[in-house]
Design a protein around this nucleic acid. Structure first.
Length: 477
DNA sequence: CGTTTTTGACCGGCGC
DNA sequence: GCGCCGGTCAAAAACG
């Protein structure tokens, strides 16, 4: 870089000494004759040079700044700005496209989810309708068999026994509901001791707006003098069975300070009454998890022991149950099934007793379940108030442990005993099984139904229940 | 404002 | 037929 060999400027401070000024102000930067030998003057020159450099640098800097400003605004504006704008545009477009892509993906996922939900609902409906069709078909077949039997004029009782036996075997094989057995008996044994209550009276029937005359009367069922028509009889069976199943009650006695034990379902109170012989009011609840769910329960404190809460369940749920409700539902359903399959034809507790005793595996006992023959409705009572004593392991028949042995839901914190007894009394074998098996996806009613269909199940559940509750000495009733 | 609870009225079965 | 009783309904109140 070539600097001017001479730089002349006017320093106002030294203007009073023009002669010096010139001497000072003029310098030959490229002269080899530096004033190195002159000490003071050399210091001055050095300082001057520094000052000059500063001033020159300032001037240069100013120029540079100006230039930069000018260039940035003028010389580079069209090119750089365009480039920068273009870059920004590109980035923006990329971002927008990415956003669009993510939005589209999100939309697709939403659609997929909706579709899955739809499919799930459709499948669920199909399953329900299939089950209903299956039941209808089975009942029709049974009715046909009965018709044939009646036509042949065979000894009705013998044939009824055969049909019952056969049906019972079939149930064990293909997992039909135990109530089918009851159906057969209903047809065969015309003196079936059904509760004397018109099914049309039921809440769900009323709610569905069914007329009373659409529902066959009990007397029609009891009429053995006529051979019922197929559809008529299946309809009757439907109604009667449903009514009977629904009317079968499972009563659970448990100690609880709460007004109602938590069983995983949602309930709505629809009434309260003072019942005779008990100063504590009885509350009536219905299941609100499904609009048409017929399940109801009554809650009342025991007159003798106010700390005992008696919860009576009636009917079975017609909707999927939450995990927390499965255990109680399974237990009550099993107990009701047991009750119906064992005692229904005669309402005789002995038949249930006999049935439970048939299977060696059930010889372990029930000390906590009892059946009331005097009650207006067939009722099985599970007494969970007795403090179970530890006892030897009881072999439990091969039923899915998770179904019966779900996490206990009876209690909340105030509920005493059951949870502990559940875990403590559970045979190691079952605990091991329960741990190995994957948790059942919403152990559904179907599972319960299938389990209940096993002819050994009634006995099995007796053992399981007794084991489950840690029952003491063998006793029934 | 929608849902749940309360509570008196109502209904049907049953015994007398 | 009457009264009792268990169960349910439904309007009003309470609740969240």
């Amino acid at each position: 870089m070539n600097f001017p060999t001479r730089l002349v400027w006017d320093d106002g401070a030294s203007s009073t000494r023009p002669s010096e000024k010139r001497a000072i102000n003029e310098a030959d930067f490229f002269s080899n004759k530096k004033n190195c030998s002159r000490g003071s003057s050399s210091r001055i020159n050095l300082k001057e040079e520094v000052d000059r450099d500063d001033k020159r640098a300032q001037g240069f800097k100013v120029n540079m700044d100006l230039n930069l400003q000018i260039t940035s605004c003028e010389s580079e504006s069209h090119e750089d700005c365009e480039i920068k704008d273009e870059q920004t545009k590109n980035e923006r477009e990329i971002l927008f496209s990415e956003l669009r892509r993510v939005s589209a993906e999100n939309h697709q996922l939403k659609d997929l989810l909706n579709q899955l939900n739809k499919n799930y609902n459709i499948l669920q409906m199909q399953v329900v309708s299939l089950i209903q069709q299956q039941e209808q078909t089975q009942k029709s077949q049974i009715a046909s068999k009965i018709e044939i039997i009646n036509g042949r004029g065979e000894d009705r009782n013998n044939m009824n026994d055969r049909v019952v036996e056969r049906q019972f075997m079939e149930m064990g094989q293909n997992g039909k509901e135990v109530k089918t057995e009851y159906d057969t008996r209903t047809i065969g044994n015309t003196t079936l001791n059904l509760p004397h209550r018109d099914p049309s009276e039921s809440w769900d029937m009323k709610r569905l707006g069914k007329e009373k005359n659409q529902v066959p009367s009990q007397t029609h069922l009891h009429d053995s003098s006529t051979t019922p028509k197929l559809y008529g009889i299946t309809s009757d069976i439907d109604q009667a069975t449903e009514a009977a199943i629904r009317r079968a009650r499972v009563s659970v006695r448990a100690r609880s300070e709460a007004s109602m034990i938590s069983d995983g379902c949602q309930w709505r109170k629809y009434g309260q009454k003072m019942a005779k012989g008990n100063p504590c009011p009885r509350a009536y609840y219905r299941c609100t998890m499904s609009a048409s769910c017929p399940v109801r329960k009554q809650v009342q404190r025991c007159a003798e022991d106010r700390s005992v809460l008696v919860t009576t369940y009636e009917g079975h749920h017609n909707h999927p149950l939450p995990q927390a409700a499965v255990a109680m539902a399974s237990t009550t359903t099993s107990a009701a099934t047991m009750l119906l399959s064992g005692s229904m034809p005669s309402s005789d507790p002995n038949s249930f007793l006999a049935k439970a005793a048939i299977n060696p595996s059930s010889s372990s006992t029930i000390s906590l379940a009892s059946i009331s023959a005097s009650a207006p409705f067939p009722t099985i009572t599970l007494d969970l108030t007795r403090v179970p004593e530890p006892r030897a392991q009881v072999p439990v028949p091969a039923l899915h442990p998770n179904t019966l042995l779900q996490r206990p839901v009876l209690g909340e914190s105030k509920f005493s005993g059951v949870q502990m007894s559940h875990e403590l009394q559970l045979p190691q074998q079952s605990r091991d099984q329960a741990q190995k098996l994957p948790s059942l996806p919403e152990a559904s009613r179907a599972t319960t139904t299938n389990l209940a269909a096993d002819s050994n199940f009634t006995a099995a559940i007796v053992a399981a229940l007794s084991s489950f509750m840690g029952s003491g000495p063998q006793k029934l009733l």
